[in-house]
């Protein structure tokens, strides 16, 4: 029994780190890409603080197209880009490229819907005080929607965890990869169950932390 446990842990722990590594970096990159896009979606909308309706339509369409790609297909399409960025198309680091790109349009929409919750009256008050669009973004839109943004980012992380499990398909490593190789291909049920439990725990921890933080910063 003890040996079995050690065997499972030996498999699990490196995979867990790979998952954390992939998810963390992909979250960071998708936020770096998605946040400005989400902000642009809101401010360039008709009636927004930096109205650019034509641009808004195009951006919206591009984001929708990216979102409609199934993740597996996106990964394959993005192979050349992965090679360009990280020099390889397989492995944990290479997976971060398609993961980030797959999550970016999702992040953009999540950020968009959070920012749209900000009361227009508050934006208007800021305009009446002579705030620039940039000041409104950084000092009004983002701080005012912070609770909702945190929940959105939580949702993004959980989504990326889901995607990262699929990433095993291209040898991305991580818990999903472990579950496929041992649980599915070798009928190693204990490893399968252990991976599932660890994934459930990670998702729970992320959700609970996210909800807690969102509540903590909420002053409404």
């Amino acid at each position: 029994m003890n040996q079995e446990l050690i065997r499972i842990l030996n498999l699990l722990i490196p995979s867990l780190w790979q998952t954390i590594y992939m998810v963390l970096l992909s979250t960071v990159f998708s936020l770096i890409l998605g946040l400005p896009l989400g902000v642009l979606l809101v401010i360039t909308e008709k009636g927004g603080i930096w109205e650019k309706p034509a641009f808004n339509n195009i951006l919206g369409a591009v984001i929708n197209i990216l979102r409609s790609f199934p993740f597996l297909i996106l990964m394959i399409v993005i192979f050349p880009l992965s090679r360009l960025v990280v020099g390889t198309t397989i492995g944990t680091t290479a997976t971060i490229v398609p993961l980030s790109i797959a999550a970016t349009p999702f992040v953009a929409r999540v950020i968009e819907s959070s920012l749209k919750e900000v009361d227009w009256g508050v934006i208007e008050a800021s305009l009446s005080m002579g705030a620039t669009p940039f000041q409104i973004i950084t000092r009004v839109l983002i701080p005012e929607s912070l609770p909702s943004l945190i929940l959105g980012i939580t949702l993004t992380i959980i989504n990326i965890i889901g995607y990262s499990a699929m990433a095993g398909a291209i040898g991305g490593g991580g818990l999903g990869d472990l579950a496929i190789r041992y649980g599915y291909q070798r009928y190693d049920t204990p490893v399968l169950i252990a991976t599932v439990i660890v994934l459930i725990l990670i998702v729970q921890i992320v959700q609970i932390t996210g909800s807690y933080l969102a509540k903590k910063v909420d002053r409404r």
Binding site: V122, E124, A125, S128, M129, P143, E144, V217
Partner: peptide, 11 residues
């Protein structure tokens, strides 16, 4: 400018 619904920053 002041407003009916105050329009303060809640955060």
């Amino acid at each position: 400018m002041i407003f009916q619904h105050f329009n303060l920053l809640s955060s």
